Amino acid sequence: MSVETPTSGEISRWKRHFADERAVAGVLRRLSDSTGEKRDAEVLRELADAEERHAEHWAGLLDAATPSEPSRKLKFRLLDWLAGTAASDVVLILLQRSEARSAYVNEPAAPAQLAADEAVHVEVLRALAARGRERLSGNFRAGVFGANDGLVSNLALVAGMSATGVSGPVVLAAGTAGLLAGAMSMGAGEYISVRSARELLEASAPGEEVARRYGDLDMDVNELALVFRARGESPETAQAEANRIVAGSRDEGEGPGLEDVTPEADYRAVGSPWGAALSSFCFFSSGALVPILPYLLGAGPGLGLMLAIVLVGLSLMTTGAVVGLLSGASLLSRGLRQLMIGYGAAGVTYLLGLAFGASGVA
Score class of each variant (00 low, 15 high):
Gln96Lys: 11
Ala87Leu: 13
Leu94Met: 06
Gly84Ser: 11
Leu74Gln: 09
Trp81Leu: 15
Leu92Val: 03
Ala83Ile: 09
Ala109Arg: 10
Ile93Trp: 00
His121Phe: 05
Leu78Glu: 14
Ser88Val: 06
Val120Ser: 09
Ala87Ile: 12
Gly84Asp: 12
Tyr104Ile: 04
Ala100Gln: 11
Ala110Ile: 07
Ser98Thr: 07
Glu118Trp: 08
Ser102Glu: 09
Trp81Met: 15
Leu92Ala: 01
Val91Phe: 03
Phe76Tyr: 15
Ala116Trp: 05
Ala112Thr: 05
Arg77Pro: 08
Ala83Cys: 09
Ala87Trp: 10
Ser98Arg: 07
Leu114Tyr: 00
Gly84Ala: 13
Gln96Tyr: 10
Leu114Gln: 00
Phe76Ile: 06
Leu79Arg: 09
Lys75Thr: 06
Ile93Met: 01
Gln96Thr: 05
Asn106Pro: 03
Asp117Lys: 00
Pro108Thr: 12
His121Gln: 02
Ala86Cys: 01
Ala83Ser: 08
Gln113Pro: 01
Phe76Gly: 07
Lys75Cys: 04
Leu79Thr: 05
Asp117Phe: 02
Leu95Val: 06
Ser88His: 10
Pro108Gln: 09
Val120Asn: 05
Leu114Glu: 02
Asp80Val: 12
Leu78Gly: 07
Arg77His: 12
Leu114Phe: 02
Asp80Gln: 14
Asp80Ile: 14
Ala115Gly: 01
Ala115Leu: 08
Val120Lys: 11
Ala119Glu: 04
Asp89Arg: 03
Lys75Glu: 09
Asn106Lys: 14
Leu92Thr: 06
Asp89Cys: 00
Ser88Asn: 09
Leu78Phe: 13
Ala112Gln: 07
Val90Tyr: 11
Glu118Thr: 10
Ser98Asp: 10
Gly84His: 13
Ser98Gly: 03
Val90Gln: 12
Arg77Ser: 13
Leu78Asn: 08
Leu74Asn: 11
Leu74Arg: 13
Ala100Pro: 03
Arg77Gly: 14
Ser102Lys: 11
Leu79Tyr: 12
Val105Gly: 13
Pro108Asn: 07
Glu107Gln: 05
Ala115Tyr: 02
His121Arg: 04
Leu79Asp: 06
Ser88Ile: 08
His121Met: 01
Glu107Leu: 05
Glu107Cys: 03
Gln96Glu: 11
Gly84Met: 13
Ile93Leu: 00
Val91Leu: 06
Gln113Thr: 14
Asp80Trp: 14
Ala119Leu: 04
Arg97Glu: 03
Thr85Arg: 03
Ile93Asn: 01
His121Cys: 00
Ala103Cys: 06
Leu78Tyr: 09
Leu74Thr: 12
Leu78Gln: 14
Ala109Met: 11
Arg97Gln: 04
Ala116Glu: 05
Ala86Met: 11
Tyr104Gln: 06
Gln113Leu: 12
Val120Glu: 11
Asp89Val: 01
Leu82Lys: 10
Arg77Asp: 13
Glu118Phe: 07
Trp81Thr: 15
Arg77Lys: 15
Ala110Leu: 05
